[in-house]
């Protein structure tokens, strides 16, 4: 932990990079969704809190290292089998500290099989000045599989007067259905990161952003409801939505991190109710 605090202060990095891994698979058996596979390797842990009444089985990923520094890797593999329904989130925000050179990598695969439903909603990643992060989230859908997945990025801790002016922040998505690439997207910030964050056509000074995806054969049918919900929010963040090829894409651009988080949580809970008749409610971890 002391090493992490040094890294946070930008003094030096710890010497040995870590490589965490987690595999979680749910399957539908005997009339209900049950955990089928569980594997984790430090600093990643998987917690399995008791689900709320009338809500889905839940898995929570936790990192025990206190944040990522240059060279760290995490491999996350989440899946639900045919007809299974589950939700996976993370225990806390992921902090990505300054790197002297090496990139951090987070590779996440989310696979949903026919008739399945999965929500993958990690809490925000907070990138610090000089951090280097390459994140790829690959969503693999089969048949009529459905999901909601999201990511939220926060640039420094504004409450501490921190900003990000340099480093590498890459956040990429790939969505396939039955092996066909439906959507590819990559936010890529490098070199003079501050210039792009301040540019009116770039981030326009926003300190946070988020992407929320809903994949389903009828995803476009939720577009009007999502737009109505977005219009009802406090308007402190810019929210846009679009749909194509069985995919609904929602973008949120701050404002501050709290405004983005509020919009993200409201849209997620509204979308799960609208699309899957699930409670308009977030896991307890999100109620802060």
């Amino acid at each position: 932990m002391a090493e992490r605090q040094k890294a946070e202060r930008g003094v030096e990095e710890k010497k040995v990079a870590v490589h965490g891994a987690a595999t979680v698979r749910f399957e539908h058996r005997h009339g209900e969704t049950r955990l089928a596979t569980l594997y984790h390797h430090d600093p990643l842990r998987v917690l399995l809190p008791t689900p709320r009444r009338d809500d889905l089985p839940i898995a929570v990923l936790a990192t025990t290292s206190g944040g990522m520094v240059g060279g760290d890797r995490m491999d996350i593999d989440l899946s639900v089998g045919p007809g299974a329904r589950a939700l996976v989130t993370t225990q806390a925000a992921e902090k990505v500290y300054r790197s002297t050179g090496a990139d951090c990598r987070i590779d996440t695969r989310v696979a949903v099989e026919p008739g399945g439903w999965l929500e993958w909603l990690p809490q925000e990643a907070i990138v610090f000045e000089g951090s280097r992060l390459r994140r790829l989230t690959r969503l693999e859908l089969s048949g009529d599989a459905r999901l909601i997945a999201g990511e939220m990025l926060v640039f420094g801790r504004a409450a501490f007067g921190e900003t990000v002016t340099r480093g590498l922040i890459r956040d990429a998505w790939e969505v396939t259905r039955d092996g066909r690439l439906v959507w590819a997207d990559a936010l890529h910030l490098d070199e003079d990161v501050g210039e792009a964050l301040n540019h009116p056509a770039g981030f326009a000074g926003a300190g946070a952003c988020a992407t929320l995806l809903h994949a389903a054969p009828d995803a476009a049918a939720r577009l009007d409801a999502v737009r109505a919900l977005a219009d009802s929010l406090d308007q402190q963040a810019r929210v846009g939505a679009t749909a194509f090829d069985g995919l609904l894409v929602i973008r949120i651009l701050g404002g501050d991190a709290r405004a983005v988080r509020r919009a993200y949580a409201a849209l997620w809970s509204g979308l799960r109710a609208e699309a899957a008749e699930l409670p308009t409610r977030l896991p307890r971890l999100w109620e802060v």
Binding site: R170, L187, H188, L189, A201, F203, A206, C209, G240, A241
Partner: peptide
């Protein structure tokens, strides 16, 4: 490969 013109993406939405 990628972009960072989020405000432009928002206007197109």
């Amino acid at each position: 490969l990628g972009g960072r013109a989020l405000a432009v993406d928002w206007t197109s939405m």
